[in-house]
Design a protein around this nucleic acid. Structure first.
Length: 804
RNA sequence: GCCGCAGUGGCGGAAUGGCAGACGCACUAGACUCAAAAUCUAGCGGGGGCGACCUCGUGCCGGUUCAAGUCCGGCCUGCGGCACCA
C-alpha cells in the first residue's frame, strides 16, 4: 500500500490547492451555459456551525461540482445573514459592539465551512451588515416607498412591563418576557409596513411557473390563503348605515341568525351613545387585548362574547331582525372584521350558538345541525332558503351573488389571509430605515446619494424605556434637515427586520462588488434566475414569500428579467440528536462538526450526512453510522492495492459500471444521495469480491465519488488519474444498452405467491418463457389438479399463473 | 382544532403496482494475531423442519388488482408548522 488514508493531511492540502488555482470561481465569461446553485446563507451565531448546516451545503455542493464537470459555468456562493437579535443581545450582555461580535462569528463560521471543502466561490461572499451591501437594501426600500408599497400604520408590539422594551415574538415565552418573566402586553406603535398583499394574487399564480417541491407550494398557498366569497351589507335597524361582512358561504345567508363583530370594530365606538351595555363591551375588549395569540388558541374551545344591546341588524334575504355580538374569535385584521353567523354550517358559529342559545337554522340538508355543524359543500341541496331551495351549494352561491348585485347590497369578493409585512424593529442591529420625518413635508425619503445611511455608533444598544429603538437617544443623529424643504426634521429610528437583507442577497451574488447598482444588468441577465435553491422547511413560508415579493417588485420596476427568482426549490429535513430529539444545548445532544472532521475527516462527514437517510426527511445522528462511512472511504482508498493497469472496464463488470454511472448521475439530480452512495458501496464490494479493479474502473469511481468526497478522490487522482486535476474532468457518460443484462432472473408466481425463479432472455418470447416456467417442479406442484385461468408475463420481471 | 410529513428487521434506511428488507450499523462465526484492535470472508426478519423446503410478515380495519409497503376509503400513533381566517 502506498500509505495510510490520512484525511487531516490531505484535506488541508487540497483546500489550499483549490484556493490557489481558483478552482471554483464563477467565470465572468457570459458566453458559457450557466448554472446557479444556491443554499440559504447562515446566520453566523456564536455557537458556530451545527451538523445541520452541512446537510444542504453538501447536497448542493455535489450538484455544483457535478455541473462544473458537465461543462457549466457554475455560481455556488456563500454569505452571511448577520443582522439579528442574538448578536445584539450578546453584545448588550458582554459589552462588545455587535459589529465585532459579528466579525468574530463570521470568521469562525468561515473557517469551519472551509474545513469541509465546499466549492463556494468565496470571492463573492456577501454580508448583510456591510454598508456596501445594506446601501442597496435601503435603496430597494426607497423604491418600495416611492411606489407607495411602504407605509406607516399603527400596529401592536409585545411590550414587557418590567424591562420596558418591545420584544420579538421569539422573546415572549408563554405570555411572559423571556428574560425577566414579567407580564407582556400588547402596545400599539406606529410602524413601517410593506404592502405584500398587493402581490398576493401574483404570488399564488406564478407558483405555476416554478419547480418547487409540492409541500412548499402548498405552504405558500396556505399562507397566502386565497378565498373566494362575497361581501354583503346588512342594514342596521333604524339606521342608514350598514354593516359590511365577508363570507365564503353566501349561499347560507338564509341561515344567518346573528352577527359577530370583532371587539375592536369601529361600530362600537361610533354608537357608544346608543349602546346600552357599552361599558361591558369595553371591558370585554380590554380582556381580549390582553390575550396573546397563544392564549387565544388555548381558549379556542370555550367561546366568549357579549351581545350588543341597543343595536340590531336585518338579514337582507328575509327582513328578520338579528342580534349583533362581539367576540374575539372574529379578527379585525381579516375580511371586514365582521361576520354573519350561520351556526348550522360553520363549526365556530355552531359552538358559539350552542353556548349562548342562539337559533340554528338548517339551510343545506345532509346532516343533523342540532348535533353538529354541517360543513360539507359537495353534497346536499339548499333548504329553508326561498329562491335557493333545491340548488346545490355551488349553484346557490352564484345565484345569491347575482341577487346581491341586483339588490345593490353585495358583490363577489376575493380575500387573502396574507397580511402586510410589519417592517419596523425597535432595535439597533439592523439596517437604518432611510426616511426623515418633517413636520411640514411628512415622511421624506433620503436622496439616493445619501446612501448608505450608516448605522451610528452608540454607547448602549438597549432599547429605550419608551419603546423606541436605541437609535432614538442619539439626538445628533436623529436631528437632521429635511431633504425636501431644508427645515428641521427627525430621522426614523426603527431599523429593518432581519428578513430585509435576505430578501435579495441572491441578486447581489451575481455581481457582489457593483457600486452603480445592486448588481449590473449584464450579471443579472446572465445568472438569474437561481436554477436550484435549497433551504430549510422553516423558511418555506416567510423568507421564500418575502424574497419572491421583493423580486416581483424589482421585476415590475424593470430591474430584473424574470418574474420569479428561483426556478427550483427543495427543502431538507432536520438532523436530530442520537436520542431522536432536536439537537440543543439543554438536551445535551449537540454534535459539533469540528469534532467529526478531526476524528474522521471532512470527506467522512460529507459522506455520512448524505448517507444518513432520505434528504427531505429528518434523520437522527449516529456515531456508529459515521464510522461506517469512514470504513467505506478506507475501502476505496485500499483499492489501490488491487489495481491493474487495464485501461478498460473488465468484461464481467462492464454492465455494472454503466449501471452505476446511470444510477449515481440520476440520484444526484433527484436528491437521492443515500442510494447514490449505496450504489457506489455495492460497486466496490464487487471489486473486493473479485480481488481486482482496473485502472479505468477506478478512475470512473473516483469521478463519481468526487462530489461527495472531493479531497480523497482528488488525492487518489493525483496518483492514478490522467494528469489534470480531478475537478477539471468530464462527468462520465454511460450507454443505455450497456446498462441492461441480456439474461435476467424472473420470479414465477402462482396466484401471486413466488414458487420459483428462472433465468430468461430479456427479449425472449412468452412462448419459450412459458416452457421454462411449466418445467419447474415447484410450479407444477402448486398448480396440481387446478385449472389455469390466466397467465401474465411482465417482460423481464415476473410470470404469474392464476389458477382456480 | 387546522395544515404538512412519517410509521418497513435489534437500529438507520432501500424498493417505476411486479421476488420486501438494497446499502450501512450492530451482532454471530471463521481467517490473521501470543492476544486484542484493525482488516478480510461468511451468516444475519419471526415461527417450523435434519433437509430440499413450508409458513407468517411493511401501524390498524376494509377495498381495488392476476399482483399492494406502494393505489382508494376509514382509523390509530409520532414528528413539524400554525394566524379560531368566516
Amino acid at each position: 500500500m502506498e500509505r495510510v488514508y490520512n484525511p487531516n493531511e490531505i484535506e488541508k492540502k487540497w483546500q489550499d490547492i483549490w484556493e490557489k488555482e481558483e478552482a471554483f470561481q464563477a467565470s465572468t465569461d457570459y458566453s458559457k451555459p450557466k448554472y446557479y446553485a444556491l443554499v440559504e446563507f447562515p446566520y453566523p451565531s456564536g455557537q458556530g456551525l451545527h451538523v445541520g448546516h452541512p446537510r444542504p451545503y453538501t447536497a448542493l455542493d455535489i450538484v455544483a461540482r457535478k455541473r462544473r464537470m458537465q461543462g457549466y459555468n457554475v455560481l455556488y456562493p456563500m454569505g452571511w445573514d448577520a443582522f439579528g437579535l442574538p448578536t445584539e443581545n450578546y453584545a448588550i450582555k458582554n459589552q462588545i459592539h455587535p459589529r465585532v461580535v459579528t466579525e468574530n462569528n463570521v470568521k469562525h463560521f468561515k473557517n469551519q465551512l472551509k474545513a469541509l471543502g465546499y466549492s463556494f466561490d468565496w470571492k463573492r461572499e456577501v454580508n448583510t451588515t456591510d454598508p456596501n451591501y445594506y446601501k442597496w437594501t435601503q435603496w430597494i426600500f426607497l423604491r418600495l416607498f416611492k411606489k407607495g408599497l411602504a407605509y406607516k400604520s399603527e400596529m401592536p408590539i409585545n411590550w414587557c412591563t418590567s424591562c420596558k422594551v418591545g420584544l420579538a415574538n421569539e422573546e415572549v415565552v408563554n405570555g411572559v418576557c423571556e428574560r425577566c418573566g414579567s407580564e407582556v402586553v400588547r402596545r400599539v406603535k406606529s410602524q413601517w409596513m410593506l404592502k405584500i398583499t398587493e402581490y398576493a394574487e401574483k404570488l399564488i399564480q406564478d407558483l405555476d411557473q416554478v419547480d418547487y417541491i409540492e409541500k412548499v407550494k402548498i405552504s405558500q398557498k396556505n399562507w397566502i390563503g386565497r378565498s373566494v366569497g362575497a361581501e354583503v351589507d346588512f342594514k342596521l335597524v333604524g339606521k342608514e348605515e350598514t354593516l359590511r361582512i365577508f363570507t365564503t358561504r353566501p349561499d347560507t345567508l338564509f341561515g344567518a341568525t346573528y352577527m359577530v363583530i370583532s371587539p375592536e370594530h369601529p361600530l362600537v365606538e361610533k354608537y357608544k351613545e346608543e349602546i346600552e351595555n357599552y361599558k361591558e363591551l369595553l371591558a370585554y375588549r380590554e380582556m381580549a387585548a390582553k390575550k396573546s395569540d397563544f392564549e387565544r388558541t388555548e381558549l379556542a374551545k370555550d367561546k366568549t362574547g357579549v351581545e350588543i344591546s341597543g343595536i340590531k341588524a336585518i338579514n337582507p334575504v328575509n327582513g328578520k331582525e338579528i342580534p349583533i355580538w362581539i367576540s374575539d374569535y372574529v379578527l379585525m385584521t381579516y375580511g371586514t372584521g365582521a361576520i354573519m353567523a350561520v351556526p348550522a354550517h360553520d363549526e365556530r358559529d355552531w359552538e358559539f350558538a350552542k353556548k349562548f342559545h342562539l337559533p340554528i337554522i338548517e339551510v343545506v340538508e345532509g346532516g343533523n345541525v342540532q348535533e353538529a355543524a354541517y360543513t360539507n359543500t359537495n353534497t346536499g341541496k339548499l333548504v329553508n332558503s326561498d329562491f335557493l331551495n333545491g340548488l346545490e351549494v355551488s349553484k346557490a352561491k352564484e345565484k345569491i351573488i347575482d341577487w346581491l348585485i341586483e339588490q345593490g347590497i353585495g358583490k363577489k369578493k376575493v380575500n387573502y389571509k396574507l397580511r402586510d409585512w410589519v417592517f419596523s424593529r425597535q432595535r439597533y442591529w439592523g439596517e437604518p430605515i432611510p426616511i426623515v420625518h418633517c413636520e411640514k413635508c411628512g415622511y421624506v425619503p433620503l436622496e439616493e446619494k445619501e446612501l448608505p445611511l450608516m448605522l451610528p455608533e452608540v454607547e448602549s444598544y438597549m432599547p429605550t424605556d419608551n419603546g423606541e429603538s436605541p437609535l432614538a437617544v442619539m439626538t445628533d443623529w436623529v436631528n437632521t434637515t429635511c431633504p425636501c424643504c431644508g427645515g428641521p426634521a427627525k430621522r426614523e429610528t426603527d431599523t429593518m427586520p432581519q428578513w430585509a437583507g435576505s430578501s435579495w442577497y441572491f441578486l447581489r451574488y451575481t455581481d457582489p462588488n457593483c457600486t452603480e447598482a445592486f448588481a449590473s444588468k449584464e450579471a443579472l441577465d446572465y445568472w438569474m434566475p437561481v436554477d436550484w435553491y435549497n433551504g430549510g422547511m422553516e423558511h418555506t413560508t416567510l423568507h421564500l414569500l418575502y424574497s419572491r415579493f421583493w423580486h416581483k417588485f424589482l421585476y415590475d420596476e424593470g430591474l430584473v428579467r424574470t418574474a420569479e427568482p428561483y426556478q427550483k426549490r427543495t427543502s431538507h429535513g432536520m438532523i436530530l440528536g442520537e436520542n431522536n430529539e432536536k439537537m440543543s444545548k439543554s438536551r445535551g445532544n449537540v454534535v459539533n462538526p469540528d469534532d467529526i472532521v478531526r476524528e474522521f475527516g471532512a470527506d467522512t462527514l460529507r459522506t455520512y450526512e448524505m448517507f444518513i437517510g432520505a434528504f427531505d426527511l429528518s434523520a437522527s445522528w449516529s456515531q456508529e453510522g459515521v464510522k461506517g462511512c469512514r470504513r467505506f472511504l478506507d475501502r476505496v482508498w485500499k483499492l489501490q492495492d488491487m489495481l491493474t493497469e487495464e485501461m478498460n472496464y473488465s468484461s464481467d463488470l462492464e454492465i455494472k459500471m454503466h449501471q452505476t454511472i446511470k444510477k449515481v448521475s440520476s440520484d444526484f439530480e433527484n436528491l437521492k444521495f443515500n442510494t447514490a452512495i449505496a450504489t457506489m458501496m455495492a460497486l466496490i464490494n464487487e471489486f473486493y469480491r473479485k480481488g481486482s479493479v482496473t485502472k479505468k474502473e477506478y478512475q470512473t469511481l473516483l469521478v463519481l465519488l468526487n462530489p461527495v468526497a472531493p479531497h480523497m478522490t482528488e488525492e487518489l487522482w493525483e496518483s492514478y488519474g490522467e494528469g489534470k486535476r480531478l475537478y477539471q474532468q468530464t462527468w462520465p457518460g454511460y450507454e443505455e444498452d450497456k446498462t441492461v443484462e441480456s439474461t435476467v432472473e424472473i420470479a414465477v408466481q402462482v396466484n401471486g405467491k413466488v414458487k420459483a425463479t428462472i433465468a430468461v432472455g430479456l427479449e425472449e418470447a412468452q412462448e419459450t418463457v412459458k416452457e421454462k416456467v411449466m418445467a419447474q417442479v415447484s410450479v407444477q406442484a402448486a398448480i396440481g389438479e387446478k385449472k389455469v385461468v390466466k397467465e401474465i408475463y411482465v417482460k423481464g420481471r415476473i410470470y404469474n399463473i392464476v389458477i382456480k
